[in-house]
């Protein structure tokens, strides 16, 4: 019964969270309050674990919540529930697109979507860059200086080195995961 409920609750999240992993968080807060499966503190731990392990954030969250609630079957039920609605919706859209691919109108729409999609990805990249390469501190009270921004130089340098290596040196033939692994080692060695 719990399994069915996990599947259903996460299917609801999958159906209404539009636009990626972080969009699932408000739904999970509601779910925690409604079902008593986890508290907001648990949720913070889950977000931290999901962000520090590979895999899409939303999927990691579902697996974690499912496991905590009902063990391995729970993890499977929650994850399948989360992806179920979008798999159906995307297949319907994909079928529709294949049918109308020759259409001039659809082609024109996508001509407009592609630069917009590129811009949204660039924009997401910029917010990741902001969070990773800079340190924002809220100004302390008593009329002191307002918010300050500090540059995390070690991260900036690492980011720059990776970028140059993967675009302008023979290393660009390497798989991206080689850079990720090297950066993880660098992070540990230099105590980033």
């Amino acid at each position: 019964m719990t399994l069915l409920r996990l599947f259903f609750e996460f299917a609801k999240t999958g159906l209404f969270a539009v636009g990626g992993g972080l969009a699932t968080i408000p739904f999970l807060q509601d779910m925690g309050a409604g079902t008593g499966w986890f508290t907001n503190t648990d949720l913070t731990t889950m977000i931290a674990v999901s962000e520090s392990t590979p895999g899409p954030l939303g999927v990691n969250m579902a697996t974690y919540v499912g496991y905590q609630t009902a063990g391995i079957p729970g993890a499977v039920a929650a994850t399948l529930g989360l992806i179920f609605p979008s798999v159906i919706i995307i297949m319907v859209i994909a079928g529709f697109l294949q049918k109308f691919r020759q259409s001039k109108t659809v082609d024109a729409l996508f001509q407009g979507l592609r630069p917009a999609s590129t811009a949204l990805i660039a924009s997401a990249g910029l917010s990741v860059a902001g969070a990773v390469l800079f340190l924002f501190t809220q100004g302390g009270g008593q009329g002191e200086l307002a918010n300050t921004i500090a540059v995390r130089w070690p991260s900036v340098i690492l980011c720059g080195v990776v970028f140059v290596c993967m675009r302008y040196t023979p290393l660009k033939k390497l798989h991206p995961v080689a850079f990720i692994a090297a950066a993880a080692v660098a992070g540990v060695v230099f105590q980033l």
Binding site: T45, A48, V49, E51, S52, T53, T118, I121, A122, A124, G125, V128, A129, V132, L133, S155, V156, L158, C159, G160, V162, F163, M166, R167, P176, F179, I180, A182, A183, A184, V185, A186, G187, V188, F190, Q191, L192
Partner: peptide, 29 residues
């Protein structure tokens, strides 16, 4: 897991790398 110092440092490195990877992908796109 998320509080282990090794994980925190490794992740800081990975995140800096991901910024560079996304930048490079956007240029390709």
């Amino acid at each position: 897991f998320a509080q282990f110092p090794v994980v925190v440092h490794a992740l800081a490195g990975v995140n800096a790398c991901v910024v560079a990877l996304i930048a490079s992908s956007v240029i390709k796109l």
